[in-house]
Structures are given as C-alpha cells and as structure tokens.
C-alpha cells in the first residue's frame, strides 16, 4: 500500500520520533517526502506476502525448538542500584530525574 505523509507522521508520533528534528523548514518537507517515498517502496515490497497462502499456518514468532518454561521463582543477586543509576543522564538521590510533568 502507498504510504502517505499522514501515515508517516502518525507512525513517527507512535515511535516518539521527530523526523524533521533540527532541519531547516525548507529541508524538512523534502526529507519527509523522501522518507514517505522510501517507506512506500519498502512496504510495497512487504505487500507481496498477501499473495502467500497461509491458511491454517500458525505464526512462528521464535525459532526455539523446545521453549523452556519459566525459571524457578527464587531471589537472586541482581545489579546494585548504584551501578544502574551511574549511567543516568540526571538523578536525584536514588531516583532517575525527568522534567516536571505537572
């Protein structure tokens, strides 16, 4: 199916991406048009799958031959909180800090 600009922008919104971030207004439209054309081409290629007869075929989401069950539910050593917080762009004490939302 052809992908129009509205679909591209809606998808980018779902993915939390700004496709024209940092681009000058005159470049922004061209970048979006190019991306929409590329996506139309790629998704057009995907559309060939609709012709494949998959009646009664179960989807295969993982190639594992013998899926393992859940692990035993028991406590085990994890990462130290300080290790995990050490990579935070911004923190407040033992918390990850983000801009005010209210």
């Amino acid at each position: 199916m052809p992908i129009d600009l509205t679909t591209v922008l809606h998808t980018a919104e779902l993915a939390r991406l700004d496709l024209t971030y940092g681009l000058a207004p005159d470049k922004a439209q061209a970048a979006l048009d190019k991306l929409a054309a590329e996506m139309s081409g790629i998704i057009g290629h995907f559309d060939q799958l609709s012709a494949v007869d998959t009646e009664g075929v179960e989807p295969l989401y993982s190639p594992m031959l013998e899926p393992l069950g859940p692990r035993e539910d028991c406590p085990r050593a994890g990462s130290a909180p300080e290790d995990l917080l050490s990579q935070a762009p911004e923190r407040l004490g033992h918390f990850f800090a983000v801009p005010k939302i209210l």
């Binding site: 992908i3 679909t7 591209v8 998808t11 980018a12 779902l14 993915a15 991406l17 496709l19 991306l35 996506m39 790629i42 998704i43 995907f46 799958l49 609709s50 494949v52 998959t54 075929v57 179960e58 989807p59 295969l60 989401y61």
Partner: peptide, 26 residues
C-alpha cells in the same frame, strides 16, 4: 523503527506482523 512501528500498529498488525510470522513458519 518507523517500519516496525507501522507493522505493529493498529489496523496493520495482522496484515504485516502476523502474516510475516506465518510466512516465517513456511
């Protein structure tokens, strides 16, 4: 990310993501 988000998005999931998983089995 855009292609994948599209394939998983409402209205397209069955036609793309699920269909591809069936073809994967074939």
């Amino acid at each position: 990310i855009l292609l994948g988000t599209f394939a998983l998005s409402s209205g397209y999931y069955d036609a793309y993501f699920k269909k591809a998983a069936k073809v994967r089995r074939l």
